[in-house]
Write a protein that binds this DNA or RNA. Structure first.
Lengths: 157, 157
DNA sequence: CTTGACCTTCCCATGATAGGAAGCCTGATG
DNA sequence: CATCAGGCTTCCTATCATGGGAAGGTCAAG
């Protein structure tokens, strides 16, 4: 069985002592708010390091690992992409990072959010204008459908 | 070869006459603004009917087909999902539809947009607050990372 | 020893879109 | 008529973040 993986294996002898510091993926999930599925996925994509394993191949998470999961969780809740989060984690762990780099990353994401918010507000506005023009009286006549069905524009967007 | 498909085949005899009314997928794409890829995809998922084919199995699009593509294109640009668009198309083609149904569908989507806009505005706000607190002076000290790295919250979200 | 709750890996699905390969068809040119 | 470009066909793959589920191994309590 996979003897050439790089993570350290916690041998049974040491299990008693180490169980106090390490927890299984289920507990890591509970304590971080990240599902076990996603924890494994983050590991597979390199966002998380390969953690320790028991002799039975169970993953073992340290406090530090769990803090990293929480970091990722919070970054996700701010809408950062996985790629951005990978950069954030790397900055976080780099003691000689520049806070300017972090802020640039954040502002890049803010600009991205602004774009998407604006697009959705435009959709929202257009739709709402159509909806208030609709009598909604049970008749087939409907300005919303009429607007979608305009015939003339013979050009690609 | 696939003799049991349901679409009508335009036989070569009729080709001359029908070429004036029908166009290939590339032209349909240009005239509707929907990529050929997506036109085929919409057909595969049942959003579009199976169109006519030439004897060589090329798809042929009528004016009506192209209008339906434009309808879909505009609904997409308003952010409706494919499922919602399927409902919209079906209402559009139902001459005894109720405009109340259409407006309900639209308002459902408006509510959805509102939710997503609000979520993104909250992210945007939180991030911006952090970003303006960051000196961005090249030092490692960074309130953005600090905020992501808070240690205490030992609970699932 | 059995049982149930956990863990492992592997595969599949979502939704809308795009890229690409391999092969056939068509129209225009030499 | 032969050829060549470009358009068409189908089929497979990828994206992004997430989750569902199967088949099988592990562990602790009874």
């Amino acid at each position: 069985m996979k003897s050439q993986t790089s993570h350290k294996v916690i041998v049974p002898d040491a299990a008693g002592a180490l169980r106090r510091q390490y927890c299984n993926i289920g507990d890591a999930s509970l304590r971080s708010g990240v599902s076990s599925k996603m924890i494994r996925h983050y590991e597979a994509t390199g966002l998380l390091p390969e953690v320790h394993r028991t002799a039975a191949n169970y993953r073992l998470y340290s406090e530090e690992d769990i803090n990293q999961l929480r970091f990722i969780k919070r970054a996700r809740s701010l809408g950062f992409s996985m790629k951005q989060i990978a950069r954030l984690v790397s900055l976080w762990q780099n003691k000689s990072r520049s806070n300017a780099d972090v802020r640039n990353l954040a502002m890049e994401h803010v600009a991205d959010l602004d774009t998407r918010i604006r697009e959705m507000q435009e959709m929202r506005h257009a739709l709402h204008v159509l909806a208030v023009r609709c009598h909604a009286d049970g008749e087939p006549e409907c300005p919303i459908l009429d607007s979608l069905a305009v015939e003339y524009p013979d050009r690609a967007d």
